[in-house]
Design a binder for these strands. Sequence first.
DNA 1: CCATAATGTAACCATTGTAGTTACAATAAA
DNA 2: TTTATTGTAACTACAATGGTTACATTATGG
Lengths: 158, 158
Amino acid sequence: MAANTQLAVATHILTILALGQGDESPKNVRLCSEAIAHSIDTNPVVVRRLVAKLVKVGLVESQAGKGGGLSLACKPDQISLLRVYEALGDEMASPFKPHTPNQNCPTGVSMVRVLHGVFAEVEDGVRKTLESLTIADMAQAVQRAKCLEAAAGAAEQA
Amino acid sequence: MAANTQLAVATHILTILALGQGDESPKNVRLCSEAIAHSIDTNPVVVRRLVAKLVKVGLVESQAGKGGGLSLACKPDQISLLRVYEALGDEMASPFKPHTPNQNCPTGVSMVRVLHGVFAEVEDGVRKTLESLTIADMAQAVQRAKCLEAAAGAAEQA
DNA sequence: CCATAATGTAACCATTGTAGTTACAATAAA
DNA sequence: TTTATTGTAACTACAATGGTTACATTATGG
């Protein structure tokens, strides 16, 4: 199967929108799905499909029609990666899924109950990590990385 | 797709083996893949396929031939869930996978670098949680759950 | 030494999630 | 009214998972 890159792509989209958003001016730049798809190297429909989920939870605003496009519906520092993660769906596609043992085996039945607790603990840790990071952090880190790279490129040229 | 339940099933297998292992006697009971598969409610081949990975990293011993079967190669309190997780493969099948953006878009390129760091942090948290739990803990919890359930069943009967 | 019971593993299939793509209706600006 | 955009359905290709059959290998035990 193709790897699940939805959180990565959604974060990419939001970060791009954040970068387009001037910190001082209240006006967000509106980007079209075509342009975003180009940066991600995918199809505009893939972007719109993902964005639909982000719109549904109030992270993104979209406007149809000529001159329309996408923009953030929140300040970047108000968007934790946990909010993005939750926007994509409740379930983590991961190896942390209980199985369904033989219901007549008491050991098996107890196993799943215990496993459920363990996996909940794992998920909880994941959520805490995601909660501590915002799109604003991502945008800042990307800016910094771009500067460093530009500098390295310039040094290489010289 | 079928959900990935490998960690759950592997933990199930190891816990069953741990339960069959008398704490006082040094002899492990040997169980055959057929019996284990029955508790998990799957095919013996699925069990053997998984066990092969556990054998490879020295968590389980297997003996072919009549009277053969599977047994723990370690003390249960020496087997953290992290070891089990690692035995199954290096990569976490999860939504925490970076994508591959347009390599000509400097923002995209920086994005993945930053995302990589974020996802490493998530993975790190997961590993810490898994490291804090052992098969011995699982076995103990399962025992306790079974007792509770038996008591509840008895109460229901009365 | 042969019958038996077990592992090891290859091969194949069905199911399902993901992403890519085409197509087109709906919408809104110029 | 033309044009540029979103929204969404439908289809495809691909890969991962787990179930299943089949069979070679191995070791016990009578």
